[in-house]
Design a protein around this nucleic acid. Structure first.
Lengths: 230, 230
DNA sequence: CGAAATCTTGATTGAATTCAATCTAAGTGG
DNA sequence: CCACTTAGATTGAATTCAATCAAGATTTCG
């Protein structure tokens, strides 16, 4: 199964399986699976967009670079997520495997062919792009107006939401998180430490990628846009 | 005429007329025009999206707020731009008139009806959403990774590009610009002053909203993502 | 094992914010 | 018409939050 949406949670930016694109993936004679080693580029910015990808295992980062190397990660793609879908002919981001990652891929062409005939699929494509847009809109607010701790809190809530477990195993390192949040890795580390000291989370097992959220509610208090609490 | 695209420039995020949505606007018996006074709200975030709007005259800002009032403007909509188009049922931004603004509006319903029957219109809707997405993606890079002067330079280039004249009359004030660029109004003012001192621009007429770009090329050097120079 | 990678923490610096003062232009109303 | 207010912009000084520089700890891996 590709679908891994926690039953008690609404769909999230970048996760999109229940929207039925997976069915399109399944229907098309795809090129099967491909494995990328940690740190490998899957496609580059400005390259022609030939394939559309779905994460089967692992995680992917999509980013843009400035001429001097400053990097902004626009999104992380987790298991089940589809990425690399472009309306135009070229990719607008570079995509890299964060860890060893298995993706399924199909030709963009084939997907468009199916979409042209199947209103459901074409509707799902639109929904997916809209979801990406919503995510980007929220991320603009984060990048433009939130403090360091607020950004990190929002990030943890997003990951928690998307992985659907209190105990999270973050595939990306501090630098990736920093480049996603518009911070430095040191600032991310300090923010995580202060959240740990505040008791809202615990690092598990000396492995700092495993994070246990002790109090999702109190964590949400650190994010001024955090989801309303029931 | 609504279309006002300089012939030597490619389409830009948020300007979208040559994509034919205007024809859809024209075909539908719209609710005609409506005028909003400076500072007036056109629609609010989370409100049901009943209408889609096109700027006939003036300018509009779309923004999100944090609980304590921090504001992030996601986009400015200039003459010809369509805004308030949602795939879902509610608006994701608040929209306000920056200056006295005339908009044309049609029911979202009617547009969707036309789109369902006319593949060209529906394709144009997709193009428009994609354009908004591209703009948001680029803006994430700006907000996450560019310095104050770089942001202001990028802003001027964007406005120049969209208005298509070296001599620009900016409808928005310094605070609007600041909230668009994730800065304070003082920082925007300082950046503009330093660009003026560097000679790339001139304020005209003691009215600091009228800006003359003396050297677009040199201005682009201030933006590390600026358009490639021919 | 030794080297490289990753993370944390401390000290310092610095870019942007905040606080504050001034200036100009544009109303507004007596 | 002019005093007075208000809105917007600029500039200076002080502050602050995050970046940078630096060191050390721990893990991972060839």
């Amino acid at each position: 199964m590709f679908v891994r949406i926690p039953t008690d949670r609404r769909p999230q930016p970048n996760t999109l399986d229940e929207f039925g694109l997976t069915s399109a993936f399944n229907r098309i004679i795809g090129l099967g699976e491909f494995t990328y080693r940690k740190g490998t580029e899957i496609f580059g910015e400005k390259e022609p967009a030939v394939y559309v990808y779905q994460v089967k295992h692992g995680a992917v980062r999509s980013y843009k670079l400035l001429s001097d190397g400053r990097r902004q990660i626009g999104a992380f793609h987790l298991v089940g997520d589809i990425f690399g879908l472009e309306n135009g002919d070229e990719h607008r981001f570079t995509a890299e495997a964060v860890v060893e990652t298995v993706v399924r891929l199909i030709k963009r062409e084939s997907l468009q062919l199916v979409a042209a005939k199947d209103a459901v699929v074409s509707h799902n494509l639109l929904s997916m792009i809209t979801r990406n847009l919503e995510h980007a809109e929220n991320h603009m607010l984060l990048l433009g107006r939130k403090t360091a701790v607020e950004r990190v809190a929002a990030f943890l809530l997003e990951m928690d939401f998307r992985t659907g477990a209190d105990k999270m195993s973050l595939p990306m390192n501090r630098l990736d998180i920093a480049d996603y949040l518009g911070l430095t890795l040191e600032t991310v580390s300090r923010a995580l430490s202060s959240l740990r000291k505040a008791g809202v989370l615990t690092f598990l097992d000396h492995d700092q990628r495993e994070i246990m959220l002790n109090d999702r509610r109190r964590l949400a208090d650190f994010d001024p846009q955090g989801p309303a609490q029931p």
